[in-house]
């Protein structure tokens, strides 16, 4: 595998007495599609939350592209090129699909309050971004939803749009929290095909939490298994699936 783009070193996060994470070390290589699995409450979402700046870790470090990023605020982490999605999709319901995508690019001229009233200052940039957004939406078969409200979308489409929101900013790494939850089996496979396609065509990196192992395992290069805030196992999908510790953790929970 290539060099790691995201590294987590001895990461711990305690909530009072609850050790949601307790010394996790792992790395995500560039252009990898990496899985993160574990029983409920094993600390997967917490790991994402610490990496993306939601929480300050109790101990440990997070490195992204040679830079230490733990303790940064979520917006700063995003601007470095790390995009996350949520377990429950969080699009903006009063904006259309297009606007949801248009919102993301950072440092838009028209986002500054003093330039915002003067259309001519940002009109070109806005149109340019709109063309880019439409092109992206079309590329992934969502062209017809440009004007749709978020509430009119299916769960799978919402999850795709959450990812496309990152694409327009040229973000490199995507942390997806249960992208296939609540999605029909075939759609889930389509979603993961989409992810693979992004990796192959755009050279992006994915780090994916997923409970639906039957889908996940067919698409990932490497898997980490969390259990009670610690790394239980890691390896290629088939190695992990045959690891007795993993089987026990999943059955014995």
């Amino acid at each position: 595998m290539t060099k790691p783009i995201l590294e987590v070193k001895d990461l711990a996060k305690y909530f009072g007495g609850v050790k949601a994470l307790d010394g996790v070390t792992l790395e995500v290589p560039e252009r990898g599609v990496i899985g993160l699995i574990g029983p409920n409450g094993s600390g997967k979402t917490t790991l994402f939350n610490v990496v993306t700046g939601f929480y300050v870790p109790t101990r440990g470090e997070v490195w992204y592209a040679g830079e230490r990023i733990d303790g940064l605020n979520p917006n700063e982490v995003f601007l470095k090129g790390l995009v996350r999605t949520f377990q429950i999709p969080r699009l903006f319901p009063s904006l259309t699909v297009l606007e949801n995508v248009l919102l993301t690019p950072p440092r838009q001229v028209g986002e500054r309050v003093l330039t915002a009233p003067f259309r001519s200052k940002w009109e070109e940039q806005e149109k340019e971004l709109a063309r880019k957004a439409v092109a992206l939406l079309r590329k992934f078969g969502l062209g017809e939803y440009v004007r749709a409200r978020v509430s009119e979308l299916s769960a799978a489409h919402m999850k795709m749009i959450e990812t496309i929101r990152g694409l327009i900013t040229d973000a490199r790494v995507y942390l997806l929290d249960e992208p296939a939850a609540g999605v029909a089996y075939t759609t889930a496979r389509e979603l993961f095909t989409f992810i693979r396609r992004l990796r192959d065509e755009e050279g992006l990196t994915f780090f994916i939490i997923e409970h639906r192992l039957e889908v996940l395992m067919d698409f990932v290069d490497y898997v980490y298994v969390l259990h009670n805030g610690r790394l239980l196992s890691e390896g290629k999908p088939d190695e992990v699936m045959s690891d007795p510790k993993v089987i026990e953790a999943y059955i014995g929970r």
């Binding site: 300050v56 303790g71 605020n73």
Partner: peptide, 10 residues
């Protein structure tokens, strides 16, 4: 809001 005015590392 998960935002910290003073950045802190532990």
């Amino acid at each position: 809001l998960p935002y910290r005015f003073l950045r802190k590392r532990r």
